[in-house]
Design a protein around this nucleic acid. Structure first.
Lengths: 339, 339
DNA sequence: GGCTGAACCGTAAGCGTTTTCTTGCAGGTG
DNA sequence: CACCTGCAAGAAAACGCTTACGGTTCAGCC
């Protein structure tokens, strides 16, 4: 407007103090007289002055920004995490830089390199990416404060659920209902798959073993964590000679697809084949899907808090916060008819 | 690692040129000899040097960042927009700063002020917020390049669909099926509501009027664009003495809720009450919901492109890009039985 | 009265780029 | 050969803040 931006010097001059004092006053630092602070604040307000983020960053070395690295931004689970994270960061006045990187088992090239992030953020959060990926290890090991969600890495704070237990609960529920031929809709078999998969598989087989059964590979199909994939997987399972009477899907979205497949085959979830998922997706209730709910937004919040704590105090709170899950029984699971 | 960060001066010294040349070489600016450019690039690579974003910002006044202001980050529509936007911006190497601001009819305090954004971003995108809000007008009028999605403001580029037409199509579809008692599940009646609502209502009534009918207010209920709200709205409609045989829901998520309400009342969507929505939500197919699909991710991409164009050329491409919608007929709409 | 220490505040040296002038130089032109 | 043109490259002035360090003031105390 006035041709030149107003700077801290303008404020200093008008308030009759040095720029150092303005800086301290405006940032709430100590060693500033209350009266002086007020005067500076008033002048700044009057001039509609705001601290130049660029200059502040350069001088202080801090960016007030953190990066979120997530495979997907629109999928329910990740979008919900994001909204939890956003609420916390915004409350703390921290900026959120978003990096959607796509399916890591397809391509890892969009995972930002250390060079991309250096000097751009004060810390980062990584959401449910395979910790074993070199690109992910680079991120986690670049020396910045990091907080993870839905994944773990040694000596890095994270928030997650007990995936083994979640899968065990779901499977045990089917067992309790008397099911014997229990199918599994897993993610995929790529070596760089989400680690959570392994845990859920472990919980699944553990439950079976606990009941004196073993997992028949013929009762397993890959659903790639999508609705369409779940539908294909269920279709495969239905075409097996040994047809499951109940199916554990590793995610609600795959369970949705499975329900769809049942419908296409003229079958009804629950009555004909029981289905249980994991997530607590918004739509689950709508579809009457039994599921193991996890507190997704809360996971995001907790992890974001951990990162903020780390930024504030400088000490790394090495701990994995495990949040509880809960089995919500609905109409998609009923006692085995052979019972 | 080495105690001190390596700077452009280090590169300059080793490459035997001035910092000015390094700057030009690394950014691909002209007036640099090819051989010199190569040498600089090699040295930079060797030293693992990256331009300091903070210093670059301060000196150039550009941030390479754009802000996304969105009411919600986890709702399907917004999350999908976001993913379209993210893909475009990332392709252009532009950083994406996310601001989730919550429901504007509840509170507008989280809408970032001009002061919050000044010096922090080069441009911004606003997603489907009521253009009439003072906070939104401040954002749009702050002089930065802006691009809108799902909303319009005079002389600001935007991408959207023809909401009037979309609603008209949906309603006309019901009319064509012979329905006469057609209900409406709208958003809400708050004065600061999403403008898209008005358009969809207009399309709805236009279709009715075109068939020589008028909209009976008794056949309308508010669903607040949520599943739960849609369920409540449908419940209200079902309890009316004049019960609709078909319902137009202004969004798929409200339509989902409506379907749920029908189920709870022992009714079946399609057979008992026809339902049509708008969006093309992932889950629509699953629920066999007839809907008017809009290209959501594409809207995000188009609008992001418009913003990038504006940033590159400096000229504001004043145009509202209207993307096409398509009626997808599924099982939730069938001919009126009184037909 | 001088000494001490705390509280407040100013000076000025960075922070690491970008960019505007200049300058040097090579090659073409009249 | 003088002169102009145009490209490559350098010198140095911003850009606007933060902060280490030092100075001043003043109350409290021996």
């Amino acid at each position: 407007m006035t041709g030149r931006n107003i700077t801290i010097r303008d404020v200093a001059k008008i308030a009759g103090v040095s720029t150092a004092t303005v800086s301290r006053a405006l940032r709430g630092l100590p060693h500033v007289d209350a009266a002086t602070r007020d005067r500076v604040a008033r002048v700044a307000e009057e001039l509609d002055y705001v601290i130049s983020p660029s200059a502040s960053r350069l001088a202080s070395g801090r960016t007030g920004t953190i990066a979120i690295v997530t495979p997907y931004v629109s999928r329910w689970f990740f979008a919900t995490l994001l909204s939890g994270i956003d609420s916390v960061l915004q409350g703390a006045g921290v900026d959120l830089l978003l990096f959607g990187v796509g399916d890591p088992s397809v391509s890892t090239e969009r995972i930002p390199s250390e060079r991309r992030l250096r000097g751009r953020v004060d810390g980062l959060m990584v959401l449910a990416l395979p910790a074993a990926l070199p690109e992910v290890q680079n991120l986690v090991g670049m020396g910045l404060p990091v907080s993870l969600v839905g994944m773990t890495a040694s000596s890095v704070p994270s928030a997650c659920i007990d995936d083994v237990e979640a899968a065990r609960m779901a499977t045990q529920h089917l067992l309790n209902l008397g099911h014997v031929d229990i199918g599994l809709i897993a993610g995929d078999v790529s070596p760089t798959a989400f680690t959570m998969q392994d845990d859920r598989r472990r919980g699944f087989t553990a439950a079976l073993n606990g009941a004196g059964m073993t997992h028949d590979p013929v009762l397993e199909a890959s659903g790639y964590f999508t609705v369409a994939g779940g539908e294909r997987a269920m279709t495969v399972l239905l075409s097996q000679p040994r047809r499951p009477t109940a199916v554990f899907a590793m995610s609600d979205e795959m369970a949705f697809g499975a329900i769809r497949a049942l419908q296409r085959h003229g079958l009804r979830p629950g009555r004909d084949v029981s289905i249980v998922g994991v997530d607590g997706h918004d739509i689950s209730e709508l579809l009457d899907l039994t599921t193991v709910e996890q507190p997704v937004a809360e996971l995001g919040r907790v992890s974001a808090e951990a990162l903020l704590e780390q930024l504030r105090t400088g000490v790394k709170p090495f701990e994995t916060k495990v949040l509880p899950t809960e089995l919500v029984v609905r109409g998609s699971t009923v006692p085995s008819s052979t019972h």
